[in-house]
Amino acid sequence: MSTRVPIRLSVNGRAHELEVEPRLLLVHLLRDQLGLTGTHVGCDTSNCGACTVHLDGEAVKSCTVLAVQADAAEVTTIEGLTGGDGLHPLQAAFWEDHALQCGYCTPGMIMAAADLLARNPDPSEEEIRHGLEGNLCRCTGYHNIVRAVRDAAAELRAREAGARTTEVV
């Protein structure tokens, strides 16, 4: 057994200090040690994206990140996406547009979509489809996922515009 390594990281705004086996995958740290089971494992080969979380604000596949690599980092999972109560516009749009069925890919899909919208607040359909090429869904055929991301983008832009207006006033 290899030497355990101390790490400190923030997950959904909460600080943690842990000692972990170097080979521990970030996804297992989140699920098994921190009880954040909204992040899922679907493939092991970084194809399906069900394990997508944000690491320092960017989407990553947490099955292909070692927990030790997340030392000193900020991790956000589906459970912490809003930073509080209520639904994120992406969550609301996924619900409204029936962008999920079994729900297994959904947390990862939403986290990937959040990264996409941070990079591109007004993506075209094609940009959404390519932006989500790292996340597999077997249920929805993607049609409603694409629609939900577009709708959430519009909502986020409207909020942004509203916030700017408020500032001006």
Partner: peptide
């Protein structure tokens, strides 16, 4: 959906 979109 509420439980599924929030990871619960």
């Amino acid at each position: 959906d509420p439980r599924l979109i929030t990871g619960r």
